[in-house]
Every structure is written in C-alpha cells, then in structure tokens.
Write a protein that binds this DNA or RNA. Structure first.
Lengths: 207, 207
DNA sequence: GGAATAGTGTCTGTGAGACACTATTAG
DNA sequence: CTAATAGTGTCTCACAGACACTATTCC
C-alpha cells in the first residue's frame, strides 16, 4: 500500500524524469568606483557561487545558504532572474540553474573575489550570461530611484549617491539633473558633511 | 567502473534530491473586448495548461508540447515569467513550476476555455498567482508599443488597434493621445477600411 | 442636412537635459 | 584672494493629456 498520488495516466510523480536543480547567484557590489561581481574558484575555473537545491528547500533559501557556506556572506534580498535550461549547459548532466541577483556592500565581501563586470575573466557554465542578465536587472533598478539596494549607508551626500549610481550604470551622470531627479525621494537631515575642500554637502536619507 | 561525474564531496548529481519540474502556461488572448486566459479542466477543477518536463527537454519546448497536446493549440512565443517554488504548492509532492506566458489569437482557441482575467473562477495550485503575473507582464509589453504580440492581424485600423490595447490594459484610452503615441511606429498602407457609417479609417501595418 | 466615425490644431503641464550662474568652504 | 565642491535659475525640447475643431462617410 502506498500514499503516493497517481495522475490520470496512473503515474506517480517520480515516474517522470527529474532534473537536478541548482541556484547560481550574481552577487553585485560597487568597489573602487566600478560595478563588480563576486566570483568563487572551482576545480575548472571561476564561477558564480551556487548550490544544488536541498529537499523541499525554497530557492531563495538555497541562495542564502550557498552564500553563507561558499563565500561566508550573509545575503540580503535575492531576486530571481530566470531559469537557464540549456540541456548541454552542464557537462556533468541534466542541470537546470535558477539564476539570482543579490547586492551586498563591498565591505562585507572578500576583496580578491570581486571582478569588474565590464572586464570578466572566462567563467564556468553559462555564468557569464547570468552576470549579463543580473547587471541589466540591477541597472534597471537603479534607473528607477535612489540607491534601491542600499549600497550607500545613510546619511549620505548627493555626491556619494551619484558616484554609486554612476558605478552601477557604468556611465557619467550630470550632477544637476541627477540631483533634481532624486531630491523628491530623499529627506535632508539638516547636517552637512565637512571632509575636505569646498562647500560641505548636505546629508540625506531615503524618504 | 562509471562515467558519472563526482563533485568535490564525491557525490554524483543524482545523490542530490531532485524535484519534479513542471511548466504551466498562461495563454492570454483578447475575446469579446476583454483580456482572457485559457483554462483547462482537471480532476480537481480548472487549471492552466501545463506538463512535467521530459528528459533533457527545453522548458519552452515543454510549453509548446503541453499546449499542443492538452489544448490543441500551436503556441507562439512562450515567455518565461518565474519559478514558483513553494514546497507546499502541490499536494502530490515536491514540484517546482516554471510559469510561462504565451499569446494566441482568440480565433485559434476553444471559446469555452476562455475566462476573463478580471473575473476568474477558483484555480488549482497557485495558478491564480501565475495569471496575475502574466497579465502584468503582458500589460507592460502593451504599454511599450503597438500590439507587440500580434493580436491584431494587419492591416488594421487605428480603432481596431486601440480596442485591443484597451482590452489588454483593461482601461479606456484617449483616441487622439493613443494615435499620436503609436503612429511613429506604424506605416500607412494607403488603403482605407469602409465598413459602415462614418469616415473610413486608414489601414496600417507595423513598421 | 444630421449622425457617426476618423483625424488634426493647439494649449497646458511636466520633466529631462544642459548651461551658466551663485554659494560656501579650505588654504 | 583662488581652487574646489555644492547647489540653483532658467532655457529648451519633447511628450503626455486633453479639448475643440475639421474631415469624410452613410443615411
């Protein structure tokens, strides 16, 4: 006797072939003025941190677990990108990879694992493709408002905020246009930052 | 002796637990002036057409196969939405579902399977959630340009085009504003459509 | 002519983008 | 003072939105 549910063809779930399912995460950050991705060494070259899914585990849980155990980082808000399903993408067998994006402050990441996204070394599997999708997704987020992923610790000056946006987007922004586009979504603390020459900048936090 | 690849822990791929993987597709169309989704009967109520993945099959292939065999429709351009991974979403066991959106002209679909997306009956699993995500995705597509999914067969009048956009978006559009927003992306054929009272409308095709 | 449908002229408001200007600090 | 950085005034351009008008057809 069995509790296994059988479908209209009399087949149980496990009568269908089951792929291995992995999660692979592009951890992006801004370091030294440029957008970078965290890569991990593996037997056959660099790769994104990832893991196979555990039994009945949520995908986002697997992402956080893999970041914790493989790179010693507590991830924040994994965002699902898409499934990569090329049957030949992994030479070990039939493996689907669910790609994720997460964003972590550079200070919490190992510096020697950070590579500029515009100048990547060769990666295992289709991980270069995952990085490209993750970068485009993050850039879209940063076009929609001020520092949506919290890469700048508040309170921050307008210049600090703009420099992070420039690093993420990979392009220069006009200071005046940028200011006017974000000011309505910020609140001034009233304090100023004096740390060198020139007029001190006002400090803001997100509204 | 074995050709099976083993990882750093000495485990083969199949030593990791493997979920069942299904695809479920929201087939959307415009019928009778409203946006509708194609539902299929099942033992326990209505559901989206879907299937389990076959061995080494591409997800988009599984989508097209399920539409062919379950509802007798040749799908067009399946677009991947996201993975639904709640471990309790399927009472038969551990099943991941990759949700897809496809769009098909209503004339090629069985009329009695079409349900307005704003007034859905109860659905199996989390399929109501998939429909909501699919509808939002399609609406975003239709906000970006004229009939990106080809629901109107060319050549078409401006009014026919606008009515389809209104049905997809679920809201009325101003005829003049709509015209000016799409005309740069269309080319006039020079022909006109005379089919009733009033000034005949010019016929367009997509640029 | 009148009703119906198609299409345009034009005004308003909004917002991006850019240039030039003013403001406040260190040295 | 000068150099450097922060912030604003203001002009232009493009475009969404809306109202009112003109245009072409059927009856």
């Amino acid at each position: 006797m069995s509790n296994v549910h059988r479908d209209a063809h009399g087949r149980a779930l496990t009568d269908y072939p089951q792929p291995s399912v992995a999660v692979d995460t592009a951890v992006l950050t801004v370091f030294d003025g440029s957008l970078r991705v965290l890569l991990a060494p593996s037997a056959e070259g660099l790769r994104l941190p990832g893991t196979f899914l555990h039994e009945r585990e949520r995908l986002s849980e697997a992402v956080l677990r893999s970041l914790r155990t493989k790179v010693g980082v507590s991830g924040l808000r994994p965002k699902q990108l898409q499934v990569f399903d090329d049957p030949t993408r992994d030479d070990r067998g039939w493996v689907l990879s669910v790609a994720y994006l997460d964003v972590v402050e550079a200070s919490r990441l190992p510096v020697d694992g950070l590579f500029p996204v515009d100048d990547l070394p060769p990666l295992r599997y289709d991980h270069d493709h995952i990085v490209a999708v993750a970068v485009e997704s993050l850039r879209a987020e940063y076009r929609s408002g001020p520092d949506p992923r919290g890469l700048v610790s508040p309170p921050f000056t307008m210049t600090a905020l703009r420099l992070v946006h420039e690093a993420v987007l990979g392009e220069r922004l006009q200071p005046d246009t940028f200011r006017r586009s974000v000011v309505p979504k910020l609140v001034a603390t009233g304090d100023v930052k004096r740390d060198g020459r020139g007029r001190p900048g006002e400090l803001y936090v997100k509204a």
